[in-house]
Each structure stands twice: as structure tokens, then as C-alpha cells.
Amino acid sequence: MTDSRPELSIIAPMHNEAGNAARLVEEIYGVLKDRSHEIVIINDASTDGTLSELIAAKETVPTLRIVAHHRNAGQSRAIRTGVLAARAPFICMLDGDGQNPPADIPTLVDALIAEPDGTGMVAGRRVGRQDSEWKKTASRLGNGVRKALLNDDADDTGCGLKAFRRDAYLLLPFFDHQHRFLPALMKREGYHVEFRDVGHRPRMAGQSKYTNLGRLFASLSDMLGIMWLNSRARQPGGWDEI
């Protein structure tokens, strides 16, 4: 990897993803090896073999960077760490469990790059979701409630595959679980958000870090916070230096 800034940074948070980590990194590199990129994996204090897998993957993936948290800080903080470490103006994030197919990365990134600066994000919308019926039902319910309350136009905010402008993300207020509300926060800052259909596949190894009930209780309090933030948002309609 050269010292020049890449065009694109891929970020993926991982916590205890042994069995998925190296496979995912190698797959991302296979998709992007012919374009300027870096892969930034945030190891969120894993206690299994995730870090060892990632270190070994550096032998075959020259664009891989590993950023390691000293303590487990959760998915939203890991994403923020990745964005802060990233060197490219365009970022695409995806889940570290491998359920987001890397083949869909160019679909979102190319759409984002082609849009004017007013588009801050192009987010994935899972088609043929490979989860349990209970999980899909809970997700549909949660998405419906969130969409009605926040007016974020997102049918599937739980999809981890999202492309966005680094500078736009850094303007957003940060809090734990922020990653679930990125479309709403982008809109609050005045950016346009687009959505594209992407694939989804079963988890190959490890276990999900979330439960439906745990996610529901956290989301309810978070949505009240976002509603308060939205009520305090004021946009200047652009600005000029005179």
C-alpha cells in the first residue's frame, strides 16, 4: 500500500468473529483489488482468535489495516474509530459477520461518488434476508415504528452495508447505538440519503451479538433522543464567505 490517500476506505467492526474475519477481508480485497482502497478492520477487544486471523491475513491482503480497541466499546464506537482512522473521502462500512456480500460494495460506492455533494449516504436495503422469521418480523416492526417517528425514509436501517462521505459522517452527533440511526442523522444535517437493494447471506461462523428484546429497549430510548435532536435542528440553507 502506498502513502497516497486511497479513494475508498472499507471499515468493518469485529468482536469475536473468528472463522469470519480472514474470509471476509480476503473477499473484500478480491472485489476491490483493482481500485484505490484500504480495508480498516476494527477489532473491538475480541477474546477469541479474531485478531490472530486478521494479522495472518495481512500476508495476502496488502491494503489491510488493523485497529484494535483496548476495551470492548460496541459497534457504534468501533465504526467511529474506523472512520477517524480512515484516510479516504468515501467510506463504505459493513458488518464483520460476513452477512453483507462485499460484491455489493461497488453498487453503493459508485452511486455515492456519482451524486453531488448534497448526497451524504447511499444505504443498503437487504433483499432475500437470511435470518429467522422471528428476527425478520421484529425488524419489520422496529423499522416501521422508527420510520414513522423519525421520517428517515429507511425501510431497513439495520442493514450494515452503507456508503457515505467521511466529512458528512464527522458532522453527526455521536452516541452509543448511533449506527442504527445514520440515515435520520444524515437527513437532520441536511444531506440527501439514497437506498439501493443489496444481498444478504447466512452467518458462516460465530453468534449474533444482539437479541431482539435488547435491541428493542435500546432503540426506544434512542428514538426519543433522535426526536429531540430533530426538534432542535435548524439549517442555514447554505453559507458563503464574504
Rank of each mutant, 00 (worst) to 15 (best):
3 D>W: 06
6 P>K: 07
7 E>C: 04
7 E>F: 05
8 L>T: 10
9 S>C: 08
15 H>Q: 12
17 E>R: 13
18 A>T: 12
20 N>W: 04
20 N>Y: 05
20 N>M: 12
21 A>F: 01
21 A>P: 05
21 A>T: 11
23 R>A: 11
27 E>W: 12
29 Y>A: 08
35 R>M: 14
40 V>M: 07
41 I>G: 02
42 I>R: 02
43 N>G: 08
44 D>Y: 01
44 D>R: 00
48 D>A: 07
48 D>T: 04
49 G>T: 13
52 S>A: 15
53 E>N: 04
57 A>M: 05
58 K>P: 01
64 L>P: 00
66 I>M: 05
68 A>F: 02
70 H>T: 14
70 H>R: 15
73 A>Y: 00
73 A>V: 04
73 A>H: 00
74 G>P: 00
78 A>E: 04
78 A>N: 06
79 I>G: 00
81 T>K: 05
82 G>Y: 10
83 V>S: 09
86 A>Q: 09
87 R>N: 14
88 A>E: 13
89 P>G: 09
91 I>A: 09
91 I>F: 12
92 C>K: 05
96 G>Y: 01
99 Q>P: 00
100 N>H: 04
100 N>G: 07
100 N>A: 12
101 P>A: 05
102 P>L: 05
102 P>D: 14
103 A>Y: 11
103 A>Q: 15
103 A>N: 14
104 D>F: 02
105 I>Q: 08
109 V>Y: 04
110 D>S: 12
112 L>D: 03
112 L>V: 03
115 E>Y: 03
117 D>G: 11
121 M>I: 03
125 R>T: 14
127 V>S: 12
127 V>F: 09
128 G>P: 07
130 Q>P: 04
130 Q>M: 14
130 Q>G: 07
131 D>E: 15
137 T>P: 00
140 R>E: 13
141 L>R: 11
141 L>Y: 12
143 N>I: 01
144 G>E: 13
147 K>G: 07
148 A>H: 13
151 N>P: 02
151 N>W: 09
152 D>G: 00
152 D>I: 01
152 D>Y: 01
160 G>W: 01
162 K>G: 05
165 R>D: 09
168 A>Q: 13
168 A>F: 09
170 L>W: 07
170 L>M: 13
170 L>C: 07
172 L>R: 07
172 L>K: 08
173 P>L: 11
175 F>G: 01
176 D>Y: 02
177 H>A: 12
178 Q>C: 09
179 H>L: 03
180 R>V: 02
183 P>C: 03
185 L>N: 01
187 K>I: 13
188 R>M: 15
189 E>M: 11
191 Y>D: 10
191 Y>G: 05
192 H>F: 10
193 V>W: 00
193 V>Y: 00
197 D>K: 11
197 D>L: 05
198 V>E: 06
199 G>V: 01
202 P>H: 06
202 P>T: 09
203 R>Y: 09
204 M>R: 13
205 A>H: 15
207 Q>H: 14
209 K>G: 00
210 Y>C: 00
214 G>P: 01
215 R>G: 02
217 F>I: 10
219 S>L: 06
221 S>F: 05
221 S>W: 07
223 M>Q: 10
223 M>L: 06
223 M>W: 04
225 G>P: 00
225 G>M: 07
227 M>Y: 07
233 A>P: 02
234 R>P: 02
235 Q>A: 10
236 P>M: 07
236 P>T: 12
238 G>K: 10
240 D>S: 14
